[in-house]
Design a protein around this nucleic acid. Structure first.
Lengths: 268, 268
DNA sequence: TATTTTGTGATTAACTGAGTGAAATAGATA
DNA sequence: TATCTATTTCACTCAGTTAATCACAAAATA
Protein backbone atom coordinates (compact mmCIF):
# COMPACT_ATOMS: atom_id res chain seq x y z
CA UNK A 1 0.00 0.00 0.00
CA UNK A 2 1.39 3.36 -0.96
CA UNK A 3 1.81 6.26 1.41
CA UNK A 4 -0.87 8.14 -0.47
CA UNK A 5 -3.37 5.43 0.22
CA UNK A 6 -2.71 5.35 3.92
CA UNK A 7 -2.85 9.10 4.10
CA UNK A 8 -6.14 9.03 2.28
CA UNK A 9 -7.48 6.42 4.65
CA UNK A 10 -6.34 8.36 7.69
CA UNK A 11 -8.07 11.47 6.39
CA UNK A 12 -11.23 9.53 5.74
CA UNK A 13 -11.29 7.99 9.20
CA UNK A 14 -10.64 11.33 10.85
CA UNK A 15 -13.61 12.75 9.00
CA UNK A 16 -15.73 9.89 10.27
CA UNK A 17 -14.52 10.84 13.73
CA UNK A 18 -15.94 14.30 13.20
CA UNK A 19 -13.15 16.38 11.67
CA UNK A 20 -13.66 18.50 8.58
CA UNK A 21 -11.65 17.66 5.49
CA UNK A 22 -9.17 20.47 5.94
CA UNK A 23 -8.70 19.63 9.58
CA UNK A 24 -8.17 15.97 8.82
CA UNK A 25 -5.65 16.73 6.09
CA UNK A 26 -3.73 19.14 8.26
CA UNK A 27 -3.60 16.69 11.12
CA UNK A 28 -2.32 13.90 8.93
CA UNK A 29 0.15 16.29 7.34
CA UNK A 30 1.44 17.33 10.72
CA UNK A 31 1.69 13.71 11.81
CA UNK A 32 4.13 13.18 8.97
CA UNK A 33 6.08 16.26 9.90
CA UNK A 34 7.83 16.58 13.19
CA UNK A 35 6.93 20.21 13.07
CA UNK A 36 5.67 22.43 10.30
CA UNK A 37 4.56 25.84 9.17
CA UNK A 38 1.43 26.74 7.26
CA UNK A 39 3.43 26.85 4.07
CA UNK A 40 4.96 23.41 4.51
CA UNK A 41 1.59 21.99 5.37
CA UNK A 42 -0.07 23.43 2.32
CA UNK A 43 2.67 21.86 0.23
CA UNK A 44 2.28 18.28 1.43
CA UNK A 45 -1.52 18.40 1.72
CA UNK A 46 -3.92 19.95 -0.70
CA UNK A 47 -5.19 22.50 1.69
CA UNK A 48 -4.77 26.04 0.38
CA UNK A 49 -2.21 27.85 2.49
CA UNK A 50 -4.59 30.58 3.54
CA UNK A 51 -6.96 28.00 5.01
CA UNK A 52 -4.35 26.12 6.99
CA UNK A 53 -4.53 28.74 9.70
CA UNK A 54 -8.23 28.20 10.41
CA UNK A 55 -7.94 24.44 10.24
CA UNK A 56 -5.05 24.36 12.68
CA UNK A 57 -6.87 26.71 15.01
CA UNK A 58 -9.78 24.31 15.13
CA UNK A 59 -7.46 21.38 15.67
CA UNK A 60 -5.79 23.19 18.51
CA UNK A 61 -9.18 23.81 20.10
CA UNK A 62 -9.80 20.07 19.95
CA UNK A 63 -6.50 19.32 21.63
CA UNK A 64 -5.02 17.62 18.60
CA UNK A 65 -2.21 19.99 17.71
CA UNK A 66 0.09 22.38 19.51
CA UNK A 67 0.86 25.82 18.23
CA UNK A 68 3.98 27.86 18.67
CA UNK A 69 2.99 31.49 18.39
CA UNK A 70 6.08 32.74 16.66
CA UNK A 71 6.41 34.14 13.20
CA UNK A 72 6.04 32.08 11.19
CA UNK A 73 3.85 29.99 13.45
CA UNK A 74 5.01 26.45 14.03
CA UNK A 75 2.55 23.61 14.31
CA UNK A 76 3.01 20.17 15.72
CA UNK A 77 0.66 17.22 15.98
CA UNK A 78 0.07 15.73 19.38
CA UNK A 79 1.60 12.22 19.56
CA UNK A 80 -0.71 9.55 18.21
CA UNK A 81 -1.35 7.85 21.52
CA UNK A 82 -2.22 11.13 23.17
CA UNK A 83 -4.50 12.01 20.29
CA UNK A 84 -6.40 8.75 20.41
CA UNK A 85 -6.66 9.03 24.17
CA UNK A 86 -8.11 12.51 23.83
CA UNK A 87 -10.58 11.38 21.21
CA UNK A 88 -11.54 8.46 23.38
CA UNK A 89 -12.15 10.69 26.39
CA UNK A 90 -14.37 12.91 24.26
CA UNK A 91 -16.29 9.92 23.02
CA UNK A 92 -16.75 8.38 26.44
CA UNK A 93 -18.05 11.65 27.80
CA UNK A 94 -20.61 11.81 25.03
CA UNK A 95 -21.85 8.27 25.39
CA UNK A 96 -22.14 8.92 29.07
CA UNK A 97 -24.25 12.01 28.57
CA UNK A 98 -26.37 10.12 26.08
CA UNK A 99 -27.04 7.24 28.44
CA UNK A 100 -27.99 9.58 31.28
CA UNK A 101 -30.27 11.65 29.10
CA UNK A 102 -32.05 8.68 27.57
CA UNK A 103 -32.57 7.04 30.92
CA UNK A 104 -34.27 10.16 32.19
CA UNK A 105 -36.47 10.72 29.17
CA UNK A 106 -39.91 9.48 30.08
CA UNK A 107 -41.49 6.61 28.33
CA UNK A 108 -44.37 7.98 26.36
CA UNK A 109 -46.34 4.79 26.09
CA UNK A 110 -46.93 1.79 28.35
CA UNK A 111 -46.17 -0.61 25.49
CA UNK A 112 -48.67 -3.24 24.53
CA UNK A 113 -47.06 -6.61 25.02
CA UNK A 114 -48.77 -8.46 22.25
CA UNK A 115 -45.60 -10.20 21.32
CA UNK A 116 -47.07 -12.12 18.50
CA UNK A 117 -44.98 -13.59 15.81
CA UNK A 118 -42.79 -10.77 14.64
CA UNK A 119 -39.85 -10.57 12.33
CA UNK A 120 -37.46 -7.71 12.63
CA UNK A 121 -34.40 -6.76 10.65
CA UNK A 122 -31.21 -5.01 11.55
CA UNK A 123 -27.86 -4.28 9.90
CA UNK A 124 -24.23 -3.98 10.79
CA UNK A 125 -21.90 -6.65 12.08
CA UNK A 126 -21.31 -4.85 15.37
CA UNK A 127 -24.98 -4.46 16.15
CA UNK A 128 -25.83 -7.99 15.11
CA UNK A 129 -22.95 -9.38 17.16
CA UNK A 130 -24.11 -7.46 20.21
CA UNK A 131 -27.64 -8.68 19.79
CA UNK A 132 -26.50 -12.26 19.33
CA UNK A 133 -24.44 -12.14 22.48
CA UNK A 134 -27.37 -10.67 24.35
CA UNK A 135 -29.71 -13.37 23.17
CA UNK A 136 -27.23 -16.07 24.11
CA UNK A 137 -26.80 -14.62 27.57
CA UNK A 138 -30.55 -14.65 28.07
CA UNK A 139 -30.88 -18.31 27.19
CA UNK A 140 -32.35 -20.61 29.81
CA UNK A 141 -32.60 -23.93 28.04
CA UNK A 142 -30.90 -24.27 24.71
CA UNK A 143 -28.65 -22.45 22.30
CA UNK A 144 -28.12 -23.56 18.73
CA UNK A 145 -25.60 -21.57 16.75
CA UNK A 146 -24.18 -21.96 13.27
CA UNK A 147 -21.35 -19.75 12.09
CA UNK A 148 -20.77 -19.19 8.42
CA UNK A 149 -17.61 -17.16 8.68
CA UNK A 150 -14.49 -17.32 10.81
CA UNK A 151 -14.52 -13.64 11.55
CA UNK A 152 -17.75 -13.96 13.48
CA UNK A 153 -16.13 -16.01 16.23
CA UNK A 154 -15.16 -13.05 18.38
CA UNK A 155 -13.83 -12.99 21.92
CA UNK A 156 -17.11 -11.54 23.15
CA UNK A 157 -19.09 -14.32 21.54
CA UNK A 158 -16.85 -16.94 23.13
CA UNK A 159 -17.30 -15.26 26.49
CA UNK A 160 -21.07 -15.23 26.16
CA UNK A 161 -21.08 -18.90 25.29
CA UNK A 162 -18.78 -19.92 28.11
CA UNK A 163 -20.71 -17.95 30.67
CA UNK A 164 -23.84 -20.01 30.14
CA UNK A 165 -24.87 -22.36 32.92
CA UNK A 166 -23.87 -25.91 32.31
CA UNK A 167 -27.48 -27.09 32.27
CA UNK A 168 -28.10 -25.27 29.02
CA UNK A 169 -27.73 -27.33 25.91
CA UNK A 170 -25.16 -25.83 23.60
CA UNK A 171 -24.89 -26.85 19.97
CA UNK A 172 -22.55 -25.06 17.64
CA UNK A 173 -22.01 -25.71 13.97
CA UNK A 174 -19.48 -24.41 11.51
CA UNK A 175 -19.02 -24.39 7.77
CA UNK A 176 -15.58 -25.96 7.71
CA UNK A 177 -13.34 -28.16 9.81
CA UNK A 178 -10.88 -25.52 10.88
CA UNK A 179 -13.59 -23.31 12.29
CA UNK A 180 -15.23 -26.25 13.99
CA UNK A 181 -11.93 -27.13 15.60
CA UNK A 182 -11.43 -23.59 16.84
CA UNK A 183 -14.90 -23.55 18.32
CA UNK A 184 -14.34 -26.90 19.95
CA UNK A 185 -11.22 -25.56 21.65
CA UNK A 186 -12.72 -22.25 22.65
CA UNK A 187 -16.02 -23.53 24.00
CA UNK A 188 -15.44 -26.88 25.69
CA UNK A 189 -19.03 -27.20 26.88
CA UNK A 190 -20.42 -27.13 23.39
CA UNK A 191 -21.28 -29.96 21.12
CA UNK A 192 -19.86 -28.92 17.78
CA UNK A 193 -20.77 -30.18 14.37
CA UNK A 194 -20.05 -29.51 10.75
CA UNK A 195 -22.78 -28.39 8.47
CA UNK A 196 -22.69 -27.45 4.88
CA UNK A 197 -25.29 -24.75 4.56
CA UNK A 198 -26.43 -25.88 1.17
CA UNK A 199 -29.99 -25.90 2.28
CA UNK A 200 -29.93 -22.25 3.14
CA UNK A 201 -28.15 -21.38 -0.04
CA UNK A 202 -30.81 -23.15 -2.01
CA UNK A 203 -33.54 -21.59 0.04
CA UNK A 204 -32.16 -18.12 -0.56
CA UNK A 205 -32.47 -19.18 -4.13
CA UNK A 206 -31.95 -16.48 -6.65
CA UNK A 207 -29.23 -14.32 -5.19
CA UNK A 208 -25.81 -15.86 -5.38
CA UNK A 209 -24.12 -12.80 -3.86
CA UNK A 210 -25.14 -13.77 -0.36
CA UNK A 211 -23.11 -15.73 2.14
CA UNK A 212 -24.72 -17.04 5.27
CA UNK A 213 -23.38 -15.27 8.32
CA UNK A 214 -24.84 -16.79 11.44
CA UNK A 215 -27.87 -18.69 12.49
CA UNK A 216 -28.95 -18.60 16.09
CA UNK A 217 -31.78 -20.34 17.89
CA UNK A 218 -32.37 -19.68 21.55
CA UNK A 219 -34.79 -21.67 23.69
CA UNK A 220 -36.83 -22.53 20.63
CA UNK A 221 -38.52 -19.17 20.85
CA UNK A 222 -36.09 -16.82 19.18
CA UNK A 223 -34.26 -17.01 15.92
CA UNK A 224 -31.68 -14.84 14.26
CA UNK A 225 -30.35 -15.38 10.76
CA UNK A 226 -27.80 -13.14 9.14
CA UNK A 227 -26.34 -12.90 5.68
CA UNK A 228 -23.19 -11.22 4.49
CA UNK A 229 -22.86 -9.44 1.18
CA UNK A 230 -19.42 -10.67 0.13
CA UNK A 231 -18.54 -7.57 -1.86
CA UNK A 232 -19.16 -5.04 0.89
CA UNK A 233 -18.84 -7.33 3.92
CA UNK A 234 -22.07 -5.73 5.06
CA UNK A 235 -24.05 -7.98 7.37
CA UNK A 236 -27.82 -7.99 7.59
CA UNK A 237 -29.96 -9.99 9.92
CA UNK A 238 -33.54 -10.96 10.38
CA UNK A 239 -34.54 -11.60 13.88
CA UNK A 240 -37.63 -13.32 15.16
CA UNK A 241 -38.86 -12.89 18.69
CA UNK A 242 -42.00 -13.73 20.56
CA UNK A 243 -42.55 -17.02 18.83
CA UNK A 244 -44.62 -19.51 20.71
CA UNK A 245 -44.72 -22.44 18.41
CA UNK A 246 -44.18 -20.88 15.03
CA UNK A 247 -40.49 -21.31 15.51
CA UNK A 248 -40.91 -24.94 16.12
CA UNK A 249 -41.90 -25.26 12.53
CA UNK A 250 -38.71 -23.66 11.42
CA UNK A 251 -36.43 -25.62 13.69
CA UNK A 252 -38.18 -28.85 12.76
CA UNK A 253 -37.61 -27.99 9.19
CA UNK A 254 -33.96 -27.38 9.82
CA UNK A 255 -33.71 -30.71 11.58
CA UNK A 256 -35.55 -32.45 8.81
CA UNK A 257 -33.19 -31.01 6.25
CA UNK A 258 -30.22 -32.43 8.07
CA UNK A 259 -28.74 -29.07 8.88
CA UNK A 260 -28.68 -29.94 12.53
CA UNK A 261 -27.50 -33.28 13.84
CA UNK A 262 -30.27 -35.60 14.95
CA UNK A 263 -30.88 -35.82 18.64
CA UNK A 264 -33.70 -36.43 21.09
CA UNK A 265 -36.34 -33.80 20.57
CA UNK A 266 -37.50 -32.05 23.68
CA UNK A 267 -41.11 -32.53 24.64
CA UNK A 268 -43.15 -29.32 24.13
CA UNK B 1 -35.04 18.81 34.50
CA UNK B 2 -37.99 18.32 32.19
CA UNK B 3 -38.32 15.49 29.73
CA UNK B 4 -38.04 17.95 26.89
CA UNK B 5 -34.65 19.05 28.10
CA UNK B 6 -33.26 15.56 28.36
CA UNK B 7 -34.64 14.70 24.96
CA UNK B 8 -33.01 17.78 23.55
CA UNK B 9 -29.72 16.87 25.17
CA UNK B 10 -29.89 13.32 23.89
CA UNK B 11 -30.52 14.58 20.37
CA UNK B 12 -27.61 16.97 20.64
CA UNK B 13 -25.20 14.32 21.86
CA UNK B 14 -26.28 11.91 19.18
CA UNK B 15 -25.54 14.55 16.59
CA UNK B 16 -22.09 15.00 18.08
CA UNK B 17 -21.69 11.26 17.71
CA UNK B 18 -22.33 11.64 14.00
CA UNK B 19 -26.07 11.26 13.52
CA UNK B 20 -28.12 13.72 11.50
CA UNK B 21 -30.81 15.67 13.26
CA UNK B 22 -33.66 13.56 11.92
CA UNK B 23 -31.84 10.37 12.77
CA UNK B 24 -31.11 11.58 16.27
CA UNK B 25 -34.69 12.63 16.86
CA UNK B 26 -36.07 9.39 15.55
CA UNK B 27 -33.75 7.34 17.71
CA UNK B 28 -34.66 9.26 20.82
CA UNK B 29 -38.31 9.04 19.88
CA UNK B 30 -38.05 5.30 19.47
CA UNK B 31 -36.21 4.99 22.74
CA UNK B 32 -39.25 6.48 24.44
CA UNK B 33 -41.56 4.16 22.57
CA UNK B 34 -41.41 0.42 23.00
CA UNK B 35 -42.27 0.19 19.37
CA UNK B 36 -43.63 2.67 16.89
CA UNK B 37 -44.73 3.45 13.38
CA UNK B 38 -43.66 6.33 11.20
CA UNK B 39 -46.81 8.14 12.11
CA UNK B 40 -46.35 7.81 15.85
CA UNK B 41 -42.75 8.88 15.53
CA UNK B 42 -43.60 11.99 13.57
CA UNK B 43 -46.07 12.88 16.30
CA UNK B 44 -43.71 12.77 19.26
CA UNK B 45 -40.69 14.20 17.41
CA UNK B 46 -40.69 17.06 15.00
CA UNK B 47 -39.59 15.04 12.08
CA UNK B 48 -41.99 15.27 9.15
CA UNK B 49 -43.65 11.94 8.63
CA UNK B 50 -42.41 11.59 5.09
CA UNK B 51 -38.82 11.75 6.26
CA UNK B 52 -39.10 9.28 9.09
CA UNK B 53 -38.64 6.50 6.60
CA UNK B 54 -35.24 7.68 5.38
CA UNK B 55 -34.04 8.45 8.86
CA UNK B 56 -35.01 5.05 10.19
CA UNK B 57 -33.43 3.35 7.21
CA UNK B 58 -30.15 5.07 7.99
CA UNK B 59 -30.46 4.18 11.64
CA UNK B 60 -31.07 0.58 10.72
CA UNK B 61 -27.95 0.59 8.60
CA UNK B 62 -26.02 1.77 11.63
CA UNK B 63 -27.42 -1.00 13.76
CA UNK B 64 -29.35 1.31 16.03
CA UNK B 65 -32.92 0.32 15.23
CA UNK B 66 -34.75 -2.77 14.13
CA UNK B 67 -37.40 -2.74 11.45
CA UNK B 68 -40.38 -4.95 11.05
CA UNK B 69 -41.26 -5.00 7.38
CA UNK B 70 -44.98 -5.17 7.77
CA UNK B 71 -47.54 -2.62 6.78
CA UNK B 72 -47.38 -0.24 8.40
CA UNK B 73 -43.74 -0.81 9.23
CA UNK B 74 -42.89 -1.09 12.90
CA UNK B 75 -39.72 0.37 14.29
CA UNK B 76 -37.95 -0.33 17.54
CA UNK B 77 -34.81 1.11 19.05
CA UNK B 78 -32.07 -1.23 20.04
CA UNK B 79 -31.72 -1.34 23.86
CA UNK B 80 -29.53 1.43 25.21
CA UNK B 81 -26.69 -0.78 26.35
CA UNK B 82 -26.56 -2.51 23.00
CA UNK B 83 -26.62 0.83 21.22
CA UNK B 84 -23.75 2.27 23.23
CA UNK B 85 -21.82 -0.94 22.77
CA UNK B 86 -22.34 -0.74 19.03
CA UNK B 87 -21.29 2.88 18.92
CA UNK B 88 -18.25 2.04 20.98
CA UNK B 89 -17.28 -0.79 18.65
CA UNK B 90 -17.61 1.55 15.71
CA UNK B 91 -15.43 4.09 17.41
CA UNK B 92 -12.76 1.60 18.40
CA UNK B 93 -12.61 0.29 14.87
CA UNK B 94 -12.08 3.78 13.55
CA UNK B 95 -9.38 4.73 15.99
CA UNK B 96 -7.71 1.46 15.16
CA UNK B 97 -7.77 2.16 11.45
CA UNK B 98 -6.50 5.64 12.12
CA UNK B 99 -3.58 4.45 14.20
CA UNK B 100 -2.56 1.85 11.64
CA UNK B 101 -2.80 4.28 8.77
CA UNK B 102 -0.84 7.00 10.49
CA UNK B 103 1.87 4.61 11.56
CA UNK B 104 2.33 3.51 7.98
CA UNK B 105 2.32 6.97 6.47
CA UNK B 106 5.91 7.87 5.82
CA UNK B 107 7.59 10.64 7.60
CA UNK B 108 8.26 13.32 5.03
CA UNK B 109 11.09 15.04 6.82
CA UNK B 110 13.93 13.92 9.05
CA UNK B 111 13.11 16.59 11.61
CA UNK B 112 15.79 19.04 12.69
CA UNK B 113 16.32 18.65 16.40
CA UNK B 114 17.19 22.17 17.25
CA UNK B 115 15.14 22.04 20.38
CA UNK B 116 15.77 25.58 21.34
CA UNK B 117 13.56 27.44 23.70
CA UNK B 118 10.07 26.95 22.41
CA UNK B 119 6.65 27.77 23.75
CA UNK B 120 3.67 25.90 22.47
CA UNK B 121 0.00 26.18 23.21
CA UNK B 122 -2.81 23.69 23.28
CA UNK B 123 -6.47 23.62 24.34
CA UNK B 124 -8.98 21.30 25.87
CA UNK B 125 -8.96 19.75 29.32
CA UNK B 126 -8.70 16.21 27.98
CA UNK B 127 -5.73 16.96 25.79
CA UNK B 128 -3.95 18.96 28.45
CA UNK B 129 -4.56 16.29 31.04
CA UNK B 130 -3.15 13.64 28.74
CA UNK B 131 -0.10 15.73 28.04
CA UNK B 132 0.45 16.45 31.72
CA UNK B 133 0.27 12.78 32.57
CA UNK B 134 2.71 12.01 29.80
CA UNK B 135 5.17 14.61 30.99
CA UNK B 136 4.93 13.34 34.54
CA UNK B 137 5.54 9.78 33.44
CA UNK B 138 8.65 10.89 31.58
CA UNK B 139 10.16 12.59 34.61
CA UNK B 140 13.54 11.36 35.79
CA UNK B 141 14.41 13.76 38.59
CA UNK B 142 11.73 16.07 39.80
CA UNK B 143 8.05 16.90 39.39
CA UNK B 144 6.51 20.08 40.69
CA UNK B 145 2.78 20.39 40.28
CA UNK B 146 0.26 22.98 41.39
CA UNK B 147 -3.44 22.37 40.93
CA UNK B 148 -5.85 25.28 40.82
CA UNK B 149 -9.05 23.30 40.62
CA UNK B 150 -10.36 20.18 42.29
CA UNK B 151 -11.69 18.73 39.07
CA UNK B 152 -8.18 18.41 37.70
CA UNK B 153 -7.22 15.75 40.22
CA UNK B 154 -8.30 12.81 38.08
CA UNK B 155 -7.71 9.12 38.63
CA UNK B 156 -5.29 9.06 35.70
CA UNK B 157 -3.26 11.89 37.17
CA UNK B 158 -3.04 10.13 40.52
CA UNK B 159 -1.90 6.98 38.76
CA UNK B 160 0.79 8.82 36.85
CA UNK B 161 2.06 10.39 40.05
CA UNK B 162 2.08 7.17 42.04
CA UNK B 163 3.84 5.26 39.29
CA UNK B 164 6.92 7.46 39.52
CA UNK B 165 10.05 5.93 40.99
CA UNK B 166 10.60 6.82 44.59
CA UNK B 167 13.87 8.59 43.81
CA UNK B 168 12.03 11.33 41.98
CA UNK B 169 11.26 14.39 44.01
CA UNK B 170 7.53 15.05 44.03
CA UNK B 171 6.12 18.38 45.14
CA UNK B 172 2.45 19.10 44.80
CA UNK B 173 0.63 22.27 45.71
CA UNK B 174 -3.03 23.13 45.90
CA UNK B 175 -5.11 26.26 46.19
CA UNK B 176 -7.06 25.25 49.26
CA UNK B 177 -6.78 22.96 52.25
CA UNK B 178 -9.39 20.43 51.18
CA UNK B 179 -7.66 19.82 47.89
CA UNK B 180 -4.28 19.60 49.57
CA UNK B 181 -5.67 17.01 51.96
CA UNK B 182 -7.08 14.94 49.12
CA UNK B 183 -3.76 15.05 47.32
CA UNK B 184 -1.91 14.10 50.44
CA UNK B 185 -4.12 11.04 50.82
CA UNK B 186 -4.02 10.05 47.19
CA UNK B 187 -0.30 10.48 46.61
CA UNK B 188 1.55 9.45 49.77
CA UNK B 189 5.00 9.92 48.23
CA UNK B 190 4.42 13.58 47.53
CA UNK B 191 5.31 16.56 49.60
CA UNK B 192 2.22 18.72 49.49
CA UNK B 193 1.91 22.38 50.20
CA UNK B 194 -0.60 25.16 50.06
CA UNK B 195 -0.09 28.05 47.75
CA UNK B 196 -2.26 31.00 47.11
CA UNK B 197 -1.66 31.78 43.49
CA UNK B 198 -1.82 35.49 43.95
CA UNK B 199 1.44 35.97 42.19
CA UNK B 200 0.13 34.39 39.03
CA UNK B 201 -3.11 36.31 39.20
CA UNK B 202 -1.19 39.53 39.47
CA UNK B 203 1.14 38.53 36.71
CA UNK B 204 -1.78 37.77 34.42
CA UNK B 205 -2.77 41.28 35.32
CA UNK B 206 -5.55 42.69 33.23
CA UNK B 207 -7.90 39.82 32.68
CA UNK B 208 -9.87 38.85 35.73
CA UNK B 209 -11.82 36.15 33.88
CA UNK B 210 -8.99 33.68 34.13
CA UNK B 211 -8.52 31.06 36.78
CA UNK B 212 -5.25 29.21 37.07
CA UNK B 213 -5.68 25.58 36.12
CA UNK B 214 -2.43 23.75 36.63
CA UNK B 215 1.22 24.46 36.75
CA UNK B 216 3.67 21.69 36.04
CA UNK B 217 7.47 21.64 36.10
CA UNK B 218 9.30 18.49 35.15
CA UNK B 219 13.04 18.01 35.63
CA UNK B 220 13.58 21.75 35.43
CA UNK B 221 13.46 21.51 31.66
CA UNK B 222 9.78 21.48 30.88
CA UNK B 223 6.96 23.68 32.04
CA UNK B 224 3.23 23.62 31.47
CA UNK B 225 0.83 26.29 32.68
CA UNK B 226 -2.87 26.20 32.06
CA UNK B 227 -5.70 28.62 32.66
CA UNK B 228 -9.42 28.02 32.77
CA UNK B 229 -12.00 30.43 31.48
CA UNK B 230 -14.56 30.23 34.29
CA UNK B 231 -17.54 30.95 32.09
CA UNK B 232 -16.95 28.22 29.53
CA UNK B 233 -14.73 25.90 31.61
CA UNK B 234 -12.47 25.87 28.58
CA UNK B 235 -8.89 25.12 29.50
CA UNK B 236 -5.90 26.45 27.62
CA UNK B 237 -2.27 25.70 28.24
CA UNK B 238 1.11 26.97 27.26
CA UNK B 239 3.78 24.42 27.25
CA UNK B 240 7.52 24.93 27.16
CA UNK B 241 9.91 22.22 26.11
CA UNK B 242 13.58 22.01 25.24
CA UNK B 243 14.65 24.49 27.85
CA UNK B 244 18.24 24.24 28.92
CA UNK B 245 18.62 26.98 31.45
CA UNK B 246 15.91 29.39 30.43
CA UNK B 247 13.53 27.57 32.64
CA UNK B 248 15.79 28.06 35.58
CA UNK B 249 14.93 31.69 35.40
CA UNK B 250 11.27 30.94 35.67
CA UNK B 251 11.55 28.45 38.46
CA UNK B 252 13.87 30.77 40.40
CA UNK B 253 11.32 33.44 40.00
CA UNK B 254 8.61 31.23 41.30
CA UNK B 255 10.77 30.32 44.26
CA UNK B 256 11.63 33.91 44.89
CA UNK B 257 7.99 34.85 44.90
CA UNK B 258 7.23 32.32 47.57
CA UNK B 259 4.95 30.27 45.41
CA UNK B 260 7.01 27.22 46.10
CA UNK B 261 8.24 26.30 49.53
CA UNK B 262 11.93 27.00 50.13
CA UNK B 263 14.29 24.10 49.85
CA UNK B 264 17.84 23.29 48.83
CA UNK B 265 18.35 24.30 45.23
CA UNK B 266 19.91 21.66 43.04
CA UNK B 267 23.29 22.45 41.49
CA UNK B 268 23.02 23.09 37.74
C1' DT C 1 13.51 50.54 0.92
C1' DA C 2 12.00 46.90 -1.95
C1' DT C 3 10.43 42.35 -2.04
C1' DT C 4 9.02 38.17 -0.38
C1' DT C 5 6.67 35.63 3.14
C1' DT C 6 3.07 35.24 6.50
C1' DG C 7 -1.43 35.94 8.31
C1' DT C 8 -6.44 37.79 8.24
C1' DG C 9 -10.70 38.78 6.22
C1' DA C 10 -14.11 38.88 2.68
C1' DT C 11 -16.38 36.68 -1.09
C1' DT C 12 -18.02 33.06 -4.12
C1' DA C 13 -19.12 28.33 -5.36
C1' DA C 14 -20.42 23.67 -4.20
C1' DC C 15 -22.46 20.70 -1.23
C1' DT C 16 -25.26 18.77 2.43
C1' DG C 17 -29.20 18.43 5.04
C1' DA C 18 -33.71 20.29 6.57
C1' DG C 19 -38.21 21.05 5.14
C1' DT C 20 -42.37 20.51 1.76
C1' DG C 21 -45.39 18.62 -1.49
C1' DA C 22 -46.66 15.47 -5.28
C1' DA C 23 -47.08 10.87 -6.85
C1' DA C 24 -47.27 5.86 -6.29
C1' DT C 25 -48.45 1.91 -3.60
C1' DA C 26 -50.92 -0.79 -0.48
C1' DG C 27 -54.99 -1.64 2.70
C1' DA C 28 -59.35 -1.00 4.09
C1' DT C 29 -64.27 0.04 3.26
C1' DA C 30 -68.38 0.24 0.85
C1' DT D 1 -64.79 -4.41 -7.68
C1' DA D 2 -64.42 0.40 -7.02
C1' DT D 3 -63.31 3.93 -3.94
C1' DC D 4 -61.15 5.95 -0.40
C1' DT D 5 -57.69 6.34 3.03
C1' DA D 6 -53.28 5.69 4.92
C1' DT D 7 -48.59 4.47 4.00
C1' DT D 8 -44.42 4.97 1.55
C1' DT D 9 -41.37 6.70 -1.89
C1' DC D 10 -39.59 10.37 -4.75
C1' DA D 11 -38.41 14.84 -6.40
C1' DC D 12 -37.67 19.41 -5.34
C1' DT D 13 -36.69 23.95 -2.83
C1' DC D 14 -34.41 26.49 0.61
C1' DA D 15 -30.92 27.41 4.03
C1' DG D 16 -26.72 26.64 6.34
C1' DT D 17 -22.12 24.82 6.06
C1' DT D 18 -17.83 23.97 4.04
C1' DA D 19 -14.55 24.17 0.38
C1' DA D 20 -12.13 27.24 -2.60
C1' DT D 21 -10.30 31.77 -4.33
C1' DC D 22 -8.99 36.47 -3.93
C1' DA D 23 -7.58 40.83 -2.01
C1' DC D 24 -5.06 42.97 1.32
C1' DA D 25 -2.38 44.04 5.63
C1' DA D 26 1.51 42.93 8.51
C1' DA D 27 5.85 41.08 9.15
C1' DA D 28 10.25 39.40 7.89
C1' DT D 29 14.12 39.38 4.74
C1' DA D 30 17.33 41.11 1.55
Amino acid sequence: MSTDDTVEEAVEVLQQLGLKEYEAQCFVGLSRLSTGTAKQLSEITDVPRTRVYDAVRLLEAQGLVEVQHSSPQQYRAVPLDEATETLRDQYEARVDRLAKALEQADQVEPADEDSVQEVWSMSGTDAIANRSNQLISDATEEVVLVLGDESLLTAELIDSLNELESGIELLIGAVDESLEARIHDAVPNATTFLSGLDWLRNEAGTDENLAIGRLLLVDRSTILVSTIVPTTREEQAIFGGGFRNGLIVISRRLLAQGLLPQRDPHPE
